[in-house]
Design a protein around this nucleic acid. Sequence first.
DNA 1: TCATGTAACTAATAAACGTTAGTGTAAAGC
DNA 2: GCTTTACACTAACGTTTATTAGTTACATGA
Lengths: 190, 190
Amino acid sequence: MEKSKKQIIKEASAKLFRKKGFNATSMQDIAAAVGIKAASLYNHIGSKQELLKELLFNIANAFTSGMNDIEASTLSNIEKLEALIDLHVDLTITYRDSIALITGEWVHLEEPDLKNYLKLRTQYEAQFLNILSACKKSKHIDKNTNIELALYSILSSLHWLYSWYNKNKGVSKIELAKQLKVTLLKGVII
Amino acid sequence: MEKSKKQIIKEASAKLFRKKGFNATSMQDIAAAVGIKAASLYNHIGSKQELLKELLFNIANAFTSGMNDIEASTLSNIEKLEALIDLHVDLTITYRDSIALITGEWVHLEEPDLKNYLKLRTQYEAQFLNILSACKKSKHIDKNTNIELALYSILSSLHWLYSWYNKNKGVSKIELAKQLKVTLLKGVII
DNA sequence: TCATGTAACTAATAAACGTTAGTGTAAAGC
DNA sequence: GCTTTACACTAACGTTTATTAGTTACATGA
């Protein structure tokens, strides 16, 4: 089955939202990118807001689902950290454009979507912190390390991964993940 | 001398731009925040675009100037890295709201400001990378470390510092800088 | 062949936007 | 006391915006 028109529109939107921001992207911009007139978009989508919502929740759900898999696995805590980095690298490469939206464009969600989105995000961070906390308990992370700060540091690096990846298309996914584990975890893990 | 009205407007704008984004913030929003009508803003400022421009270049210049001081200093390379983290912490605390704009809102600058802004940014990153490179040469950073990736990792963490700092007002500036040095540099420095 | 559904189009609407023009008023400078 | 400046206001303008309504063309399936 080929890609649906709606999917094409969503991908074009992601690219534009990323480059110009949600508000600065007009329906005409999106329409032009897929070769139709703005009004014709509404044969395929409900609203501009719906586009943003679906793009963001696609990704949020992918992260949540990946995190749940990792949490339920029998990996060691350190291995879970590594698996999380793999997850971020995978999703960054899979979703490319739309993943950029999670850094800033989520603020343009309307209620109640905004609340639901933040709920997913908060939960994700809590699960991530849990794993870091377990590492600390099992003495794989130094007693004096501020794990909240470490969490923020790791997550912000991973959030920006997409912009780094787009500048270095040459680097392989495996090599990227390997380097990230060294850079992000060596400062934390004993 | 007390704060000029223009300064008050700029600070209110920074807070709003940060929360809602540049495009989603209307002149009425800004006017309401300072207790006047939208049209009255133009007694103090030239345009909405000018507000963004001045906010961004204030910060960009502060970073550039701080970086130049550090580069010209007699500190060791490792000490320069630590000084850079101090610089980011200082500016994050000093500028609070407007510093958030450098992560995303700079895309709404118009030419030729956009080009000039990116020039400053690129130069800053190059200088930062230079210091990392010197550390690698002097064997303070492992031969196999990808310093471009390390740079991105450090910078993205520092870009997000403002959002972390706002959630943890209790933590002191000194303690924050100390923790950051451990978290960000231990993974890199041998 | 006819009916149906899909998906494009043009035209229009109502709201919001940044900005300008013109007016009033009170304080400051001569 | 007169003039000027500073700074607020209202009113309006021209654009841009997302979205709706109504229409047309074409392909599919009965």
